Amino acid sequence: MHYTDSGAGLPVVLAHAFPVDSRMWNGVRQPLAGRARVITPDQRGLGRSPLDTGDGVPEPSLDVAADDLLRLLDDLGVDRFVVGGCSLGGYVAMAVLRRAAERVAGLLLVDTRATADDAEQRATRLGMAERLERDGAGDWLASTLVPGMLGATTRADRPEVVEEVARLVSDQPAAGVAWTQRAMAARPDSTDLLGAVTVPALVVVGEQDTMTPPQVASQLAARLPQGRLAVLPECGHLSPVEAPEAFVDAVGPWLTELAGRG
């Protein structure tokens, strides 16, 4: 599993969004690493992490992704950690809670949701997975997904960010993207799980996120017993990419507070 390990102190593992890789954290990694130890892996089948790690390709499941992450942390000698993720990464963070809640010292949910897919959403994911397996990724994947991943301000005023995200999407292996779509389609509802979380939690959302909008984020924060909400202006579903300074301003002090608790 490919990963980047930066900084020292409180371990924070950040799982990336779909369908990109850990480079989405490039704009926030070093500023956050001044406050904590920041570990950013490429998830199975995406970026530089292989889909088949030597034992064959497992059935698509976010529990597999969570186990990958926990195994990496074991290899790094990390017992307790803050787990965070954006979009897909948030789903993986919730899967980690199902697998090893006792190891989680804090929860960071970014532009994500707790509910499972409905029938229509599931069918869309499976249809895209079938097309990827049949035709490969090509230009159609980025042109289909990127507009919805970014806020209106980013699309209008930040062409370099649009190009960066399109490049990240285009870099992903079709097989890994298809596997991940199937894993997300099969994920369970995590609403009750979050209601039982006893550690500090921060929910971050882009003001212009149309995929998991601020209303959804507000409901997430309210569900978490120690939940807080930060809404970042002028950005969409990839808030750490679109508004890295605002993201660090929201997340950095929270991490410092957590580190101070020991």
Results as ranks from 00 to 15, higher is better:
184 M>T: 02
119 A>I: 05
187 R>Y: 00
249 D>I: 08
177 V>Y: 00
128 M>T: 14
75 D>G: 15
127 G>A: 04
208 Q>P: 02
35 R>N: 12
20 V>H: 05
128 M>D: 12
39 I>L: 12
116 A>C: 12
42 D>W: 11
192 D>E: 15
81 F>C: 00
6 S>M: 06
50 P>M: 05
13 V>E: 02
81 F>K: 00
76 L>K: 01
131 R>K: 14
165 V>K: 03
117 D>E: 08
137 A>Q: 03
220 L>M: 03
49 S>H: 09
237 H>P: 01
239 S>Y: 05
56 G>L: 00
132 L>Q: 02
22 S>Q: 14
140 W>Y: 05
212 T>C: 14
51 L>G: 08
138 G>D: 11
52 D>M: 10
218 S>R: 15
20 V>L: 15
255 L>C: 11
232 L>S: 01
86 C>S: 08
8 A>Q: 14
72 L>A: 08
257 E>P: 09
87 S>N: 13
131 R>G: 10
211 M>V: 13
201 A>G: 13
85 G>H: 08
116 A>T: 09
52 D>V: 04
45 G>P: 08
59 E>Y: 06
207 E>R: 13
209 D>M: 03
53 T>C: 12
204 V>A: 06
81 F>S: 03
158 R>M: 13
137 A>M: 10
59 E>Q: 13
255 L>W: 12
255 L>V: 13
76 L>T: 00
242 E>N: 01
139 D>L: 01
247 F>H: 09
39 I>Y: 00
6 S>N: 14
89 G>I: 02
92 V>L: 10
196 A>I: 06
222 A>Q: 15
158 R>C: 14
203 V>A: 07
113 R>C: 10
46 L>K: 02
187 R>L: 02
91 Y>V: 10
127 G>L: 13
81 F>I: 07
16 H>I: 05
154 T>P: 06
152 A>T: 14
252 G>W: 02
28 V>W: 07
69 L>K: 01
255 L>P: 03
197 V>I: 13
203 V>F: 14
101 A>E: 02
181 Q>K: 02
140 W>E: 15
229 L>K: 10
183 A>Y: 10
1 M>H: 10
141 L>M: 13
97 L>F: 04
11 P>E: 07
103 R>M: 06
172 Q>K: 02
101 A>D: 12
249 D>M: 11
224 L>E: 01
153 T>Q: 03
137 A>S: 15
241 V>K: 11
148 G>M: 12
235 C>G: 09
80 R>H: 15
128 M>H: 10
206 G>W: 01
222 A>C: 04
87 S>D: 14
38 V>M: 14
210 T>Q: 13
154 T>Q: 01
236 G>D: 10
41 P>L: 11
123 A>S: 10
180 T>F: 00
247 F>R: 05
191 T>H: 14
243 A>R: 12
136 G>C: 13
30 Q>M: 14
45 G>W: 06
145 L>G: 02
262 G>K: 11
31 P>D: 05
261 R>Y: 00
230 A>I: 07
70 L>V: 10
120 E>F: 06
50 P>L: 01
218 S>L: 09
6 S>Y: 03
182 R>P: 00
